[in-house]
């Protein structure tokens, strides 16, 4: 499943996409994120999945444009820590 966490508002689209088929629940992204945006837990959208999965915390879902801003400076962009930490390549950002 492609889980899009985030939102679209007048200023743009801000989604963190987690491919739950690729995610193995290792939690490397949780450690890598300096702002506590990610967590690993039960897949709320697939009641029959037994394995844990990465997701964006409830707290950050409505403000990831701001939560993720420090990792996205307007100049001198570096690879995103969460995306880099994910060995199965399950995380991507829409913006």
């Amino acid at each position: 499943m492609l889980a899009h966490y985030g939102y679209k508002d007048g200023s743009g689209d801000y989604f963190i996409v987690i491919d739950t088929d690729k995610c193995d629940g290792c939690g490397e992204c949780v450690t890598a994120c300096p702002y506590g945006v990610l967590e690993v837990g039960e897949d709320e959208n697939d009641p029959f999945r037994e394995e844990p999965v990465a997701k964006v915390t409830e707290d950050h879902r409505k403000k990831i444009k701001y939560s993720c801003a420090p990792c996205k400076p307007t100049s001198g962009k570096k690879p995103l820590p969460c995306v880099q930490a994910c060995s199965p390549d399950a995380i991507s950002h829409s913006w």
Binding site: Y66, S67, A69, P70, K72, P73, T74, S75
Partner: peptide
């Protein structure tokens, strides 16, 4: 203020 501050942090 929180939203403005995070915009400012984007430019350093």
């Amino acid at each position: 203020a929180d939203r403005i501050a995070s915009m400012v942090r984007k430019i350093g």
